[in-house]
Design a protein around this nucleic acid. Structure first.
Length: 677
RNA sequence: GGCGAGGUAGCUCAGUUGGUUAGAGCGCAUGAUUCAUAAUCAUGAGGUCGGCGGUUCAAACCCGCCUCUCGCUACCA
């Protein structure tokens, strides 16, 4: 810790096309905030950086859909997101955004430097182009019929109906989202970051010099590095983003993942004129807090950019969490399966620390974890209320009852008090070490153990009995109990900032220094404390039931949407129809295609011939179960080679609501080759 | 199919370089207690450490195979 003079702590920039939810908080912002607060409290020089990521295609699509400008979209969500973070006490030194001028300038300069150093590789390729609109189309801007499920509204990168990932060229009847026209393929030039050239240095830097990174991060990097890196395009044909600062590249912008991490730098620039020392001085420790979906960008791509720009330091660590699930299901923005931060505060006003506590205690540090409302309630009632809130309340009430709220003068220490002193020192040391090593769950347990210790102290010494016989002893006990409250207020601050503040007010003291959190003279004898006030309140079953009910409704709505039948396709002529040659056929052989999860290789008797068809049904059928089955086959579909096998036709399948596939078979045995019309 | 990360008490997780009866918190049971938001404190029950095999005097930990979960990737006509 001492080898660095200052810290640069960044947290992943949330994408400004929606609000933030508990998954974001648990995975990135709570841990980052705990870390940043801890550094500040321990008198380190630290900047804690956040901001909204406001470029990229999804935002432009959303804008188009709503008939507003992309800037309107990001303005809306930037405001909501920024407020959520503020409300939850995420203590950014600056929360910026990538659509502002400082960022555009910074990203531009960054690109230019790399360009002038000759780092980029230029490549020309074919991309879909909308001639009417005069612009290239990103994959998301192309829609067409999904080659797999036949849905007409599949995007160029993915079909949302069946979940297949696609490439734009695969779509049947591709059309431009903007104009509806059929796009044409046209040449376009782009700049690539040659990651392949950086492979050796990355291997050295990560695999040799950063073995201490978390296993999930290290393993993921190793996987990427071992399988070989390829050049990545850093520019796109789009009009929303940071313009590429080259004459020959008007109408092009920096690809969003290239400009987004530079946002950390621009935000720092915006924050302080001394920004350079946080980014370029070897004595600065750079730490990126991210989710596991961002590992490759922050461990491989961004460090490559920083290194080859030439003047920047590289991250010292990239603590990345796994994902948080909600009541057993993946959190999903599009399915509204989430607990949104702004909604939480409407339902549980003033309880931001409760959520912070639960999310930290259950943070997906080593594997995906589940958030349940029942657990939320249990942690509040059995831990925050019963352990921490209760002890503080006991100490305060007893002090008021026996000494009119005046902190008594301690008498002689017994072995018990000496033990407590030692124990607190241990707790503090462990807590600090755990935070330094990004073990926030464990550190939180340390913080809680202070009041745990206090409860035991009271139960063991029983001051309510002693008061009748030995008031001097009670003075000592309550003096120590009050000190424990103060210690708890200090050491819990990184995790529970609001509670800490509240407790300090109740104790009627100035905020103590972290370094004193192993001492027992934080509050002097004779000091008057304020009247007792509960730190936490119980959460009753009804409040939890209401949240569960809310989620059930979401589930029902999603179900209803799932049940909705896709609308009829546009009218075709009889001539269109008869072009299809569909026949009854029998499956003669079936075997799994090697090295493919979904493919079965079928030999089929079509009546016309015996032919091979490769079909993506392996998830739902075992080869031995389907031999001898009669099916419908589109026989005049152009052949296509899959995994080295030529597939001559398509077996027709019905896709059920749950996505499972069913064969279309004649009601009774029918001659192979019978035509279907 | 390839790669990565996981699979330890009902739940959430610790388990240092392999070494005696495998730990913590919550939940559960029993007891104690009343200063406290039916909170607290003590004690206890509960685990063939995903499965099988191997190395070793000794394996939760090392090796091989298998299986389940999550992610990346290939594949989906």
């Amino acid at each position: 810790m001492s080898e660095f003079k200052r810290y640069t702590v960044t947290s992943a920039l949330p994408y400004a096309n929606g609000p933030v939810h508990i998954g974001h908080l648990a995975g990135v912002y709570v841990p980052a905030d705990i870390y940043a607060r801890f550094l500040r409290l321990t008198h380190q020089d630290v900047v804690f950086i956040g901001g909204s990521d406001e470029h990229g295609v999804p935002i432009t699509l959303k804008a188009k859909k709503e008939g507003v400008s992309p800037q309107d979209i990001v303005d809306r969500y930037h405001t909501i997101i920024k407020k959520s973070f503020k409300d939850f006490g995420i203590s950014f030194d600056i929360y910026s955004r990538t659509s502002n001028k400082v960022h555009h300038d910074t990203a531009s300069e960054f690109f230019t430097t790399l360009y002038e150093k000759g780092e980029f590789v230029e490549k020309t390729s074919l991309q879909f182009y909308d001639e009417a609109e005069n612009q290239f189309l990103a994959d998301r801007y192309i829609m067409g019929t999904c080659p797999k499920c036949g849905a007409e509204d599949a995007y160029g990168d993915q079909c949302e109906k069946c979940g297949s990932s696609l490439s734009a060229e695969e779509l049947i009847n591709p059309r431009s989202v903007i104009s509806g026209n059929q796009p044409v393929l046209k040449e376009t030039k782009h700049w690539f970051l040659p990651l392949d050239k950086y492979e050796d240095e990355l291997k050295q830097w990560i695999l040799e010099e950063h073995k201490e990174w978390k296993p999930n991060v290290y393993g993921q990097c190793k996987s990427w590095l071992d399988s070989g890196l390829f050049p990545r395009a850093v520019t796109r044909d789009l009009d929303w983003g940071v313009p590429v600062p080259l004459k020959e590249a008007k109408d092009k912008v920096l690809y969003v993942w290239f400009d987004a991490p530079i946002g950390y730098i621009s935000a720092t620039k915006e924050l302080t004129p001394e920004w350079e020392k946080y980014w370029k001085d070897k004595d600065s420790k750079l730490v990126h807090f991210i989710g596991k979906d961002n590992i490759v960008f922050h461990c491989i791509i961004f460090p490559s950019m920083l290194k080859h720009e030439g003047s920047y330091i590289l991250p010292d660590n990239v603590p990345s969490n796994e994902f948080l699930n909600l009541e057993g299901d993946k959190i999903s923005t599009s399915r509204n399966w989430a607990v949104w931060l702004h909604e939480y505060l409407e339902d549980f006003p003033g309880k931001q620390d409760v959520l912070r506590y639960v999310l930290c205690a259950n943070a997906p540090e080593t594997k995906d974890n589940d958030f349940t409302w029942k657990d939320f309630q249990a942690k509040n009632n059995n831990e925050l209320v019963a352990i921490m809130g209760n002890f503080v309340n006991r100490a305060l009430v007893l002090t008021h009852k026996y000494f009119d709220g005046i902190v008594p003068t301690p008498q002689e220490d017994t072995d018990y008090e000496k033990e407590i002193r030692t124990e607190i020192q241990n707790i503090k040391t462990n807590l600090e070490n755990n935070i330094k090593h990004y073990k926030f769950r464990e550190a939180l347990k340390n913080a809680m153990s202070i009041t745990r210790l206090g409860n035991k102290y009271l139960a063991d010494t029983e001051p309510w009995k002693l008061i009748k016989t030995d008031e001097n002893r009670v003075k000592t006990i309550l003096y120590y109990s009050i000190q424990l409250c103060a210690l708890s207020a200090i050491l819990a601050e990184p995790f529970l900032p609001y509670t800490s503040e509240k407790l300090i007010k109740i104790l009627n003291i100035d905020k103590p220094d972290w370094d004193d959190a192993n001492k027992f003279d934080i509050i002097e004898s004779g000091h008057k404390i304020n009247s007792a006030e509960l730190l936490f309140e119980r959460i009753e079953d009804e409040a939890i039931a209401a949240q569960v009910e809310k989620l059930n409704k979401t589930k029902e709505m999603n179900q209803a949407e799932n049940n909705a039948v896709t609308p009829q396709k546009e009218i075709i002529t009889y001539d269109d129809f008869v072009k299809q040659d569909i026949r009854i056929a029998t499956i003669l052989e079936a075997e799994k295609v090697a090295k493919a999860d979904k493919l079965l290789k079928l030999v089929i008797d079509t009546g016309i011939d015996k032919r091979t068809i490769v079909s993506g049904i392996a998830k739902y059928f075992k080869p031995e179960d389907i031999i001898g089955k009669q099916v419908c086959v589109l026989v005049n579909l152009a052949p296509r080679t899959l995994r080295g096998i030529e597939s001559q036709g398509m077996v027709l399948m019905a896709e059920d609501k749950d996505g499972s596939l069913k064969f279309i078979s004649p009601e009774s045995i029918c001659a192979n080759g019978s035509a279907i019309s």
